[in-house]
């Protein structure tokens, strides 16, 4: 029994502890990378240029950018309503009713997620111009809706699948009509799933610039599009950074509020882990 081969004390830095430390370090390194672009924008937006003080950059957000923000909220709100109207019944039917070719249909409805934004933009621009003759705000709203509704659909479908049919059956046996069952039983119970869908769609639509670039009506400039245009024409200005930071903070706030209320598990099947 040589003493060397059997250490008597626990080593200060065992390989296991080293691995643990390295793991955490790695996670934090990656997280910093994620947030780095945001932090850079944040520090720039607070920076000074030509005598204006740091926070002065944000004055513009509520001044000349106010319009853009207003449009963003309006477009996003309308889009979410259309998404809800399209997804709630569709998800219900897909889960509860016998639909022939269910999987294919679901895939076809999910496909907008995978079409590159520039292609959606171009195809809508051309059809709006030559076929549908739409040049109002609604063209943009519909474009946002078609690109985002699959994001809404997934968490609702998951929530519907996780809801045992039993509750609906019990309700019907107790004398409730289909509509009463839907409103008083199904909707409240899939609420968190619906909210997850709303959140996902909100952060995507609220920050969408690419499809918007193609189909926005001439007089309408949403906030992300404004950021895009300013970056291209005006270079890397602190005021632009301030607007970008504001947009991200609003989105982040929405995420945090949601996590606080509902937790994270309702994103199952979507692209937030």
């Amino acid at each position: 029994m040589s003493a060397a081969s059997t250490p008597r004390r626990r080593p200060l830095l065992s390989s296991r502890r080293l691995a643990t430390i390295a793991s955490h370090a790695y996670i934090w390194l990656c997280l910093i990378l994620f947030v780095l672009p945001f932090l850079a924008l944040l520090s720039q937006s607070l920076g000074q240029r030509g005598g204006a003080s740091g926070l002065g950059n944000y004055a513009a957000v509520f001044g000349s950018f106010g319009d853009n923000l207003f449009w963003s909220f309006k477009i996003t709100g309308l889009t979410l309503l259309i998404d809800l109207a399209a997804c709630l019944p569709a998800a219900y039917a897909l889960v509860r009713y016998p639909v022939p070719g269910k999987r294919l249909l679901f895939s076809l409805l999910q496909l907008p997620l995978y079409v590159p934004g520039a292609v959606i933009g171009l195809s809508l621009l051309l059809t709006y111009t030559f076929v549908y003759k739409i040049d109002s705000m609604w063209g943009l709203v519909l474009a946002m809706a078609v690109g985002s509704f699959p994001l809404m659909m997934t968490p609702i479908v998951v929530a519907m699948k996780d809801l045992p049919v039993m509750f609906e059956e019990a309700s019907e046996c107790l004398g409730a009509t289909k509509w009463q069952t839907y409103r008083r039983i199904v909707f409240p119970l899939i609420g968190p799933g619906v909210s997850a869908g709303l959140l996902l769609c909100f952060i995507i639509v609220f920050n969408e610039y690419l499809v918007t670039l193609f189909v926005h009506p001439p007089a309408l400039e949403t906030a992300p599009l404004k950021v895009f245009n300013l970056v291209r024409t005006n270079g890397l200005a602190p005021t632009t950074a301030a607007l970008a930071v504001t947009m991200q903070l609003i989105s982040f706030l929405a995420v945090i509020v949601f996590f606080r209320i509902f937790g994270t598990r309702h994103f199952k099947g979507t692209y937030i882990l």
Binding site: P164, M166, F167, E169, A170, S171, I185, L189
Partner: peptide, 8 residues
């Protein structure tokens, strides 16, 4: 039902 199926 087999499970109570009370509306949670």
């Amino acid at each position: 039902f087999q499970a109570p199926a009370l509306f949670p």
